[in-house]
Design a protein around this nucleic acid. Structure first.
Length: 571
RNA sequence: CGGGGUGUAGCUCAGCCUGGUAGAGCACUACGUUCGGGACGUAGGAGUCGCAGGUUCAAAUCCUGUCACCCCGACCA
């Protein structure tokens, strides 16, 4: 492509309302434009990237034996009533009525449609297993679409659904998808990690997320340095400390702590390490009664874990300040287990603490030297907290580190949730009707593009991984307008590279060198060739990889072959 | 949904408090100079000041309503 044929302007100035680097760079480089909140147009340069991602995904899905289909975006509401999700799904599900006043939805996902397809088409165990996939537009009416195409309302998703006669076949289908995903993200040139995940509301028996590693990622991932254990922090188990609880050595003492708000302030005020403090949270049980949760001052409560505890509201609900005052007679900030008669659950770490500091259940007062079994009853013990770096790995091998990631893929064993509700059955060898097992497997295709930028950029712009760069090579002729020699050399190289099947972008604008260099770097094209009179005199071109700091000389003679040899070589 | 903020040229913003001819930089058009890291000069095109009411001789500016967008929202328990 010639840049003079490309009408899209890139932006020198930062768009005012773009928060994250990928959004800013995608706008600046002219990959996307916003239509309305969470709705984006993909411009030619951006679409080239998107199509490359799609192609790699399709190739690997096909290789794994999945069958591509295309299901409608608009779906009848009655299918959602049948699966039970008409009521379960919140306002994220965009609903509307057609001209006959029938309920319709814009599909946020396609379990209902594909299960309907399966129950009509699949009648025998001999047709199984099968995996249907599509690359298709999804609509989710997010409360707060953010970060450009990272969390848009309309987005492109690869979704796949497998159907099986039994659990063993589901396991096998799931494993195949794991392998396919591993290949996909490897081929995309991204640094990623597969992690154990919370199956959450979708239910089922197993689930793993694929995260692109980036410091700006919204999710935290715990991984072991001594094994291949990796899990979303929501899921990673915090083991009980190895050392037993020490014997009490201090008497419980009331301390006035006025204007002390944070745990850090409390520790400083009392001159104790934060590891000696215990903070208290109040959640609601099934019947709305307050339940006191205790975690160490420097730890964070994990509400996903809390929501799974027996007897507690699920998902977890924090008690209101009014309810807290009624139950404890103190404001949040001065709560503790001493004198509280309700249910108390301590984190495993807290259960092994002695002589700790905690709230006195009187506003602006704390207690020091508190011990379980002496000052208050022994609490229930559970894993309540997020793991932190340095915790032992739950599989017993190594210690955990924490990384940040962007979730770009998720694979689930669904089991029979949808097939049961919608009556998707086949006949087995005995001619008996059995409910099919299902798996589902998603990749956020548009999000992959944003995540790739988020992971690969520098102060000058995007640094595309080679497999998904919009162009492989950019030609930067200097003094294009005046120098016939430069034009001829650039045109020849452009033609020869294109003939050789290289995706090449020619900057044939009458622009100053600085402008061309800056744009080439903003666009993030991996390989750059400068054509200038200076070098032509010596029969040379200048080559530079986007990740490299310095130029290399490239003989004009045989330049096409020399360049082709470099394509695909990581920088 | 609650709280905060912003809507003025394609983009980034000033002007609003204190009402009186709608501005700057970038981008765009033409011409000239310039040409290896986001040039410069001259001339130009481009905005119903989000929208609707109201106050006023006069509204981008004050008032009311409305829409859109952005940010924050229970780790201080």
């Amino acid at each position: 492509m010639r840049l003079t044929d490309y009408p899209i302007q890139n932006l020198k100035e930062e768009p005012a309302d773009a928060e994250v680097v990928s959004h800013r760079l995608m706008l600046r480089a002219g990959l996307i434009r916003r239509l309305a909140g969470g709705l984006y147009t993909w411009l030619p340069m951006g679409l080239r990237v998107l199509r490359k991602v799609e192609r790699i995904i399709r190739e690997e899905m096909d290789r794994a034996g999945a069958l591509e289909v295309s299901m409608p975006v608009a779906q009848p509401g009655e299918l959602w009533v049948e699966s039970g999700r008409w009521d379960q799904f919140g306002p994220e599900l965009l609903r509307f009525k057609d001209r006959h006043d029938r309920d319709m939805v814009l599909g946020p996902t396609h379990e209902e449609v594909v299960t309907d397809l399966a129950r009509r088409e699949l009648k025998s165990y001999r047709q199984l297993p099968v995996n249907f996939y599509q690359v298709q537009t999804k609509f989710r009416d997010e409360i707060r679409p953010r970060f450009g195409v990272m969390r848009a309302r309309e987005f492109l998703m690869k979704d796949a659904y497998s159907f099986h006669a039994d659990e063993a076949s589901l396991d096998e289908g799931y494993r195949k998808m794991y392998v396919a995903y591993d290949r996909i993200f490897t081929r995309l040139g991204l640094r990623f990690r597969a992690v154990q995940a919370d199956p959450g509301a979708i239910g089922g028996t197993g689930s793993q997320e694929f995260h692109v590693l980036a410091d700006s990622g919204e999710d935290a991932i715990a991984y072991s340095d001594g094994s291949d254990y990796a899990a979303n922090v929501e899921m990673a188990e915090a083991l009980a400390p190895a050392a037993p609880r020490p014997a009490p050595s201090q008497a419980a003492t009331r301390v006035h702590t006025p204007r002390v708000k944070t745990i850090a302030e409390l520790a400083a005020f009392l001159s104790v390490p934060v590891e000696r403090t215990v903070k208290a949270f109040v959640v609601e049980s099934h019947d709305g009664a307050p339940v006191l949760l205790l975690v160490r001052g420097d730890h964070e409560v994990n509400l996903v874990k809390v929501g799974k505890l027996a007897g507690l509201a699920s998902p977890a609900r924090m008690a209101t300040p009014a309810a807290i005052r009624a139950a404890f007679g103190a404001d949040p900030g001065s709560l503790g287990p001493v004198g509280f008669s309700g249910r108390v659950i301590a984190d495993r770490t807290v259960a092994a603490m002695a002589d700790f500091v905690t709230g006195a259940n009187e506003t602006d007062w704390h207690l020091t030297g508190v011990n379980f079994g002496r000052d208050c009853p022994e609490p229930e013990v559970a894993d309540l907290r997020n793991v932190v770096a340095g915790d032992p790995s739950p599989d017993g091998h190594g210690t955990l580190g924490i990384a940040r990631g962007i979730e770009v893929g998720h694979i689930f064993k669904l089991g029979s949730k949808y097939s049961e509700a919608m009556g998707a059955t086949v006949l087995d060898e005995q001619g008996k009707s059995i409910v099919m097992r299902m798996g589902c497997y998603g990749i956020g295709v548009t999000r992959v593009v944003a995540a790739a930028v988020e992971q690969n950029n520098d102060e000058r712009g995007i640094v595309w991984p080679e497999p998904i760069a919009p162009f492989q090579v950019v030609l930067v002729p200097l003094n294009w307008a005046k120098s016939a020699r430069v034009r001829e050399a650039a045109e020849a190289l452009y033609r020869d590279l294109a003939t050789a099947g290289v995706e090449v972008l020619l900057d044939d604008r009458d622009a100053r060198p600085g402008v061309k260099f800056a744009d080439a770097e903003l666009f993030g094209i991996p390989h750059r060739v400068v054509i200038a009179e200076r070098g032509l005199d010596a029969g040379k071109l200048e080559y530079r990889h986007r990740r490299a700091a310095d130029n290399e000389e490239l003989p004009l003679e045989g330049a096409v072959d020399a360049l082709r040899a470099r394509l695909g070589v990581p920088g």
